[in-house]
Design a protein around this nucleic acid. Structure first.
Lengths: 227, 227
DNA sequence: TAGATTGTTAATCGATTAACAATC
DNA sequence: TAGATTGTTAATCGATTAACAATC
């Protein structure tokens, strides 16, 4: 009956950026913005902004533009930021600690309620009032507290089995920082942060730019113009 | 004269994943693999693998497949992993320390040679033999050592000006962890890691899956089948 | 009302998949 | 040689951009 319209991940991954820019405008006291103005700030096309937004309904007003606060709120709702998420961190090494210490996530409704590790030297330590527990306690904790998101910042050797256990215990999302691809039941959503991939991509860009520059220099010195 | 073929970022961003899988195969002692076998392991189409690789030339052999070691090396070269990169970290907070402590990058030729911060309590501290210096020393250091990559793990308030300075001092790439978009000259390549975007995307996926499940339950309970 | 800007359709462009001839 | 699998062209699919009628 209702139109089935699967929204592409390309669109979804642009939403947080819109959300961020709108939040900044809001803080500056800007109340309205047109797709053209926003497109210039964000270095995208106005058409894309309008297309993206209209996947979710009409948030603007012809002849006027978009109300910044309203649009910001609505995008937040689409992303699911109107609700809270209970999170745990599995693996309290440097990266786990870094995330635990960040306050910006909790502001957006992502609440850190548990920390787990195997290392006895870390167990008992507290970060922002959350104590590191032995990983043996994780099953009970996840079930009792209905934890939604697990942040995987542990050595990659144990990630696969941990992810499988967490899936069994009812976790909804895994934020995976290990260089591993997780194949879990579709009751569990996975979002990967592959830092090494990102760094390799930067290396590519650097080399590519170098090659382009050399090519340009060469054609200029020869006096050729290639399109 | 030579064919101009700009390779899309979609393709590039898949290369590190191929590289990782090939590395794992190599470690397992696998010497050859076909695009079909690899596609099954990686959950992509064989066609895509062959198309991706053939952007850079033919690495395989008809009737045989691909030599794992050779393909691994070649993808490494495409990504620019055959050379070393001198890196510094700007902002030695939790995240900066986490990256500094990670040994996996240096194995791939990304060498951390400098750490900078404004915090006097951090200055003088050492991580893996690299001492944290006052940020005042950064200009001289970058120029003298011909630093290629700066890792920006500092508060977002100072990122913009820092990026501009680094660009002026000849940096080639910025690995930006701040929730900020950097607009720098095209002599500098930027790769962003927006952790908050990633987490919001996970929130979306979780909600989306929830909605899908409810929809399915409903149509099943009513006995309707919708395609 | 006239001007502005959305929402939306149509056109273009690019990316992915399918198919198959080339060839090892 | 026969079988397998690549490299590559063609077909399909999806995403982006352009255009413009609807409308505030």
């Amino acid at each position: 009956m209702t139109e089935e319209r699967k929204i592409s991940m390309n669109v979804i991954r642009r939403l947080p950026r819109y959300y961020r820019y709108l939040g900044e405008l809001l803080q500056k006291g800007v109340t309205k913005i047109s797709s053209r103005e926003l497109s210039e700030k964000m270095n995208v096309t106005a058409s894309q902004i309008r297309q993206d937004l209209n996947n979710f309904g009409g948030f603007g007003q012809q002849g006027y533009g978009y109300n910044v606060e309203y649009l910001h709120t609505e995008i937040g709702k689409i992303l699911g930021l109107h609700q809270n998420y209970k999170m745990i961190i599995v693996g309290v090494g440097n990266l786990g600690q870094a995330i635990a210490n960040s306050t910006s996530f909790s502001k957006r409704g992502f609440k850190l309620i548990g920390l787990f590790d195997v290392n006895p030297r870390l167990i008992g330590m507290s970060i922002h009032g959350v104590e590191v527990q032995d990983i043996d306690k994780m099953e009970q904790f996840v079930k009792e507290n209905e934890v939604e998101i697990a942040i995987l910042t542990m050595p990659k050797t144990r990630v696969k089995e941990t992810a499988e256990s967490l899936a069994k215990w009812g976790i909804k999302g895994l934020w995976n920082f290990s260089p591993v691809d997780l194949f879990v039941p579709d009751t569990v959503q996975v979002e990967n942060v592959h830092l090494s991939h990102s760094l390799m991509t930067l290396a590519y860009k650097i080399n590519e730019a170098e090659v382009e520059r050399e090519k340009k220099d060469k054609s200029e010195s020869i006096g050729q113009i290639e399109e």
